[in-house]
Each structure stands twice: as C-alpha cells, then as structure tokens.
Design a protein around this nucleic acid. Sequence first.
DNA 1: TTCGGTCAAGTGGTACGACCAATTCCGCCG
DNA 2: CGGCGGAATTGGTCGTACCACTTGACCGAA
Lengths: 226, 226
Amino acid sequence: MAADPVSDALTGLIRDLGEDARLPPERELAERLGVSRTALRDRLRLLEAFGVLSRRQGSGTYVRRLDPQGLEFALDLALSASHLSIESLHSVRVALERQAAREAARKGDPVAIAHVGKALADMEAAATAEDIDRADFAFHQALLHATGNAALTFFADAMTGVLFRAVRQRRDRLKTHPHDKEVSVAAHRPLYEALLAGDEDAAGQASDDHFRAWHDLFTHPRMERP
Amino acid sequence: MAADPVSDALTGLIRDLGEDARLPPERELAERLGVSRTALRDRLRLLEAFGVLSRRQGSGTYVRRLDPQGLEFALDLALSASHLSIESLHSVRVALERQAAREAARKGDPVAIAHVGKALADMEAAATAEDIDRADFAFHQALLHATGNAALTFFADAMTGVLFRAVRQRRDRLKTHPHDKEVSVAAHRPLYEALLAGDEDAAGQASDDHFRAWHDLFTHPRMERP
DNA sequence: TTCGGTCAAGTGGTACGACCAATTCCGCCG
DNA sequence: CGGCGGAATTGGTCGTACCACTTGACCGAA
C-alpha cells in the first residue's frame, strides 16, 4: 500500500511488536532490511513525526500509542510557513469537537465524563488567567478521551494544542481578552450537562454554541492567502 | 516555537519565498545554515511528509501549496500498524464533510458548486462500478474545494483517500455491496441541491444523511484495539 | 548490606565524503 | 531551425566515523 518495501516491513514489524515494545537498534534493523542506516532512519523519521514511534537518544526506538505531538509540531510548521490560516484550523477543530461531543454523549462513560466535570470544577476554582486556560484545555482533552475514538482524539488534540498556543501568542501581543472566568464556565457547563444526560443532539448543539463565542477572539482575521 | 533552529530557519525561508518557489540546493542550504546535509535533509523530510515541500530528484526542492498526499501516506502507515481503526477515521471524515457542506453552502461559489454538479452528472451517466466510485470521489473533492478552506480540504482529502482505498480493498475481499447507481445518486443529490439553494443547515443535514447510509458498509466492524 | 558514584557499553544524532539516479540545460550536429 | 546527446546540476543512498545521551553493572565507602 505504501509502495515502499522498507516502510511496509517497518509497519509490519510495528504491528507484530505491539504497543510499548522496543525496536531493534537502527544498525541491526538496517542490516536486516538490507538498506543503509540512512535510508532506514529516513523512514523512521516519518513514523516518528506521525506519532507511531518514539525515539530516545541513548535508549532506543519504541512503539507508542498514536500521539498527536508529531502532528502538532507539523501543523505549527505549516502555520509558520503561512500555508494555513488560524481560521481554517479553527473550523476543523469546531467540526471535530462537535463530533466528539456527540460520541461522548452517546457512549456515556461515567468515569470519563467525571474527568470532564473535574476540569469544569477546576475552572470555577481558577485564580489566574493561566489556570483558566489550563482547565479549559483539560476540559476539551477529557471530552475527547471520553469518546474512546483514537483518530478523533488524535486530530482534535493536535488541533487544540496548536490553536491554544496561537491564541495565547495573539493574546499576549494584543493585551486583549481579559478571560473572564464566569464567561468561560458558562460556555462549558451546558456541554457537560448534556454529557451527563447522555443527550447526543444537545451535546452537539452545546459544542457549536461554545465555539461561536470562542471565535470572537479573532478580531484581526488573517486572510487565507496573505 | 519548533524549538529547533534549523526547522525555524527553514519555515522562515519558506514563508519568505512563497508558493511554487524553488529552494537553494541542499548542499548550499546546509552550508548556509551551518549544519550537515544529513541534518538538513532530516528536517526537509518532515516538511515534505506534510506536503509543505516537494522534492524532485535532479530538479530541486519546491515550496508548494499544502497537499494532503503526505498525510494520506502517513495515515495509511498508521492504519497498517493497526493503531487506527477504519471506523474512527470514518467518524473524523463525517465531521469534516459536514462542516465542509455547511461552509460550501454559506460561501455559495457558483463555479465551484458547478463542479459538484458535474460530478453528480457523471455519476448518473456512469457505466461501471469503478465509474461510480470515481464520480463519488470527485463529488466530495469538489465539495471540499468549494469551501475555500485550506485546512479543512487538507484533512478531509486525506481522510477520503484513505477510506476509499480501505473500503475498496474490503469490498474486493468480501464481494459485497454491488454499488447501485440509483442509490449513490440519491444519496448525493440532496446535498447538491442544498448547495444550490445556499442553505447551510440543509447542507449539513444532507451530509449527515448521506454518511448514515455509507456507514452500513462496515458489516464486520474492526475493534478499536484488536 | 546499602547507598552512591564511576565507568563502559549500547543507542540514537550528526558529520563528511563518495557515488548513484533523475532531471535539466546547453551546445553540437544534421 | 530542430533534435539529440552529453555534461552539469540536484536530490537519493551508502559507509564510516564520531558525538551525546542513557542504561546498567561494578566498585568502594558509609
């Protein structure tokens, strides 16, 4: 499928090994696959960038559960190269979060939903703007994990990370948006209640409402093509 | 932001050069950035994997508009390594397509919508199952481009490509789903009509309806964790 | 024994130089 | 003027050596 014998062999190996396993050393693996270490590392780099592998100097290369950090890094790069606007990323995030809200409500895992409630409580108890931000982030993270949907969590996590950072930078620069605690809590509570009720439609609606307010942060919209 | 001087320098360079520009040769660029060609190529590889750059042997390295091919390749790898289920990817696609349908209806670009109509007409005129598939693919591609949203198009394109391939493989293996032309056309027409009418809510609803049928393909659901 | 440091082996990260393969460009020949 | 062939350019791979970091075993002191 990948049209690349080395990548195919690697994905097969990764599948066979399973999560948290350690791959053979690069030198040995390269010899086994009949390519140079350079070519092998080239493929490993891709898998690492996408969060399938984790490489630690001095330790080894490990299989890990899909982690959005690599994608997040790459999206940062794409954003820096101004190929992507914040608005278009935001649009993707809205779509994914709505889906996540619906799926989390449908699944209705009490433990996972409790984590969402915990984040909301932290938000109410927050003392500083930074605390609010942290709780906000945790809220959405908990919502995503409550879906049990790996791909959804993967993409939305990356999106959320990139956008939080981008907005924080913008906020620091513009000294705007005092980040009222009451407003934040009011924006998240209906979603949490919809999850508790297991109401899929209400959850989706609450997610949309929440983001309509969030979107007003962009007072100086960046064009799709500057 | 990227915590890597080389990547930062590269993204800056890419931003300054702009689309379709050609980067300096690797040997020269490596010297200019004060790193070896090995290290430089490592960073270039990442940018290429995410479609920010395009490298052609013998020709050069070019800045290109974000292209989902790299992400598609990576998703194929992740799917092969069985870290992602088809169902979870499908869920992401549903969310993105609904958003795309809404944005396309809101924008209401007549030329772009005409491309959607063209794909629908091709579907009606299709003779073989393969023709239907092709028209189906073109329909969704046209819909995405009608949004003018780069990030949305980027992710949904990749998702669509991966899923089409995965479903085709499954269909070949199971000899199921005869792919009735009438059914396909009926599933897509309401969406097209909502676009013509510029009705955002109807477009989103039509997208959801369309995918509810599509989802029935999965007769043997794959578990999230096998 | 137990704790602590020290050292050596293992492993990923980078550098350099050489060569291969595809592309491009230019000058020669018809 | 047009086509063609070879040289220069450029990305792709290889092999080797060395660096940076991690790990674990070993040894000595408390």
